[in-house]
Design a protein around this nucleic acid. Structure first.
Lengths: 144, 144
DNA sequence: ATACTTGCAAATGATTTGCCAGTGT
DNA sequence: ACACTGGCAAATCATTTGCAAGTAT
């Protein structure tokens, strides 16, 4: 459950490749699990558990996302007060700035990320994980 | 409810002064409301609604915190997956780095805050509000 | 007097858990 | 076979809302 001891990101090439990879790690691939994986690959961006469910039971979806997250295939983070957003780790290695108003989020360039992380570390010694909890504010459009 | 159109921070000098100030703004001061205000002044740091309740009804506490936040007296933010933390705006103008593991949080020096905010603004145009959603990571102790 | 507040109960939304039947390997 | 999973219902946690009764000004 802790997000701190993540496995190295599992390369997310394709659904079949991922399925094979999972089985190789001794994990079963049921219909519901494959569906979640397919939804993750099909998603255009980070999605809620609900959006990834496609009719399947939400409890199972959450359980699967949890399991996949422990394996390092999936990552989740939060924007504002809303529900968690899940995405393939591979497609989501970076940090985010998120708009609390409209929910939009922008990827942070690596150099900015590095600068921010370094600044925080030097100032208070914290190891920042902007990939899990993005920096929240208002996007250019909502700044009005 | 929106945190974006905050009134200028209400100076939080003392409970009686605050009560007077509130009444001046046409707001009533009931027992429950005064209790919340006293709890906020008595608190050593940001506290949950539950901690500020002191036996009062939680619904009222939330309603009051909400009202006080709209007036600019109170501010709330979130750490990790836990409940919201409330504090007097006056004592909480700054940004925070929070530890998702143990819940600890450290105030960010103004210059760091400024640097981070500027970096984000330049990179993606977002106006950061680190006072509402702190930067989350692991504190020095939990980094182990 | 009367509009603002409270307390209590019930509703929400997100996520988790217990449990037993179903199934992948 | 047998441990791992899924589905479903019920439980949690934080927070909100509907209302009738109470009260600050």
């Amino acid at each position: 459950m802790s997000v701190f001891h993540e496995a190295r990101p599992v390369p997310a090439v394709s659904v079949p490749a991922t399925v094979t990879s999972l089985r190789a790690q001794g994990m079963r691939v049921s219909a519901a699990r494959r569906q979640v994986i397919e939804a993750l690959f099909a998603a255009e961006g980070p999605a809620t558990a609900e959006e990834l469910a496609s009719g399947a039971d939400l409890a199972s979806v959450y359980r699967n996302l949890d399991t996949l997250e422990q394996m390092g295939l999936v990552r989740h983070f939060h924007v504002g007060h809303g529900p968690g957003l899940y995405a393939l780790t591979d497609r989501h290695r970076h940090g985010y700035a998120a708009c609390e108003h409209c929910g939009a989020h922008s990827e942070l360039p690596a150099d900015v990320l590095a600068r921010v992380t370094a600044a925080i570390r030097e100032a208070v010694g914290y190891e920042t994980r902007l990939s899990h909890f993005p920096i929240v504010g208002r996007c250019p459009d909502c700044a009005a």
